[in-house]
């Protein structure tokens, strides 16, 4: 039984069909990268799976239709990290991370310590390297620190499925690697994750499989090397990329706008 299965996902905004025909399966241990140009519908797909948008189609978590889940049960099953970088009030990092335990507490509140058996909050803060920042206010963090604190909040949920919308967009290279590594660890530990990414090398380096979207429709899916072909990059992104292999994994460096001819666009760009 797969961790997550999605069939015939369709999202409308008003009369406009923004996502159509998305099918995907995610097994435990798998990290799926969701890639595509701006406006391709990546965030919309993730939000629909997280049940934040009205949608059609069947979303099953561990074999059960998510529509049948109560709100708190669903919250324990999947954790969602939004693209929006802002924390609305300057609460302390430790309070921010502890919010991830909310679905495990009784509906009538209870103390912040309740629902944190096993120290999930501390573990999440240590994993995301924000333990030393726990007494700081959210508005006093750098962009990278805040991104890690928000990731720690997601890890604290201890949900089998993580849905992360561009978790590395605002980060320097070192912290991009840290965040992707953490998501990888989550998957190695038996969880699964769907991650929206713009950086194709990150996608290649860390994801087991990729789903490439264009204009709301899936155009390719499967192992990294099958999806990130020069033809696809040209067709979907309109770019020429420099590609290569390092330590058995592909890297992709976008180099120039599409020239309409085979590989070597990088050299063309240099000639210009």
């Amino acid at each position: 039984m797969s961790l997550l299965s999605v069939q015939g996902l369709e999202v409308r905004l008003g009369a406009r069909l923004v996502v159509e025909g998305v099918d995907l399966r995610l097994d435990s241990g798998e990290l799926l990268g969701l890639i595509g140009p701006n406006g391709a519908g990546k965030s919309t797909v993730v939000k629909a799976i997280a049940q934040l948008l009205p949608h059609r189609g069947d979303v099953r978590l561990q074999g059960r239709s998510v529509r049948r889940f109560g709100a708190r049960e669903r919250a324990r099953g999947m954790a969602y990290l939004s693209q929006d970088d802002q924390v609305q009030w300057p609460i302390l990092v430790q309070d921010l991370v502890a919010l991830g335990r909310h679905p495990h507490r009784s509906p009538w509140g209870g103390s912040d310590a309740a629902g944190d058996a096993g120290g999930a909050v501390e573990m999440a803060m240590r994993a995301a390297d924000v333990w030393t920042l726990r007494g700081r206010r959210a508005d006093q963090l750098s962009g990278g620190e805040r991104a890690r604190a928000r990731l720690a909040r997601v890890l604290a949920v201890n949900a089998p499925l993580i849905l992360a919308d561009e978790p590395v967009a605002a980060l320097d290279p070192r912290h991009q690697l840290d965040v992707m590594e953490l998501l990888r660890v989550h998957c190695v530990g038996g969880g699964g994750a769907i991650v929206v990414l713009h950086d194709l090398t990150m996608a290649s380096r860390f994801c087991d499989r990729l789903l490439l979207l264009n204009q709301g429709r899936p155009v390719a899916s499967g192992p990294v090397n099958d999806v990130l072909t020069p033809e696809q990059l040209r067709r979907v992104y309109g770019i020429e990329a420099v590609t290569g292999v390092h330590a058995g994994q592909a890297y992709i460096v976008p180099w120039a706008r599409e020239k309409g001819r085979g590989l070597g666009g990088g050299l063309d760009a240099n000639a210009n």
Partner: peptide
């Protein structure tokens, strides 16, 4: 709601 509407809804 400090986390924004999306994440708040995702937490139940």
């Amino acid at each position: 709601l400090t986390l924004g509407e999306g994440e708040a809804v995702s937490l139940g």
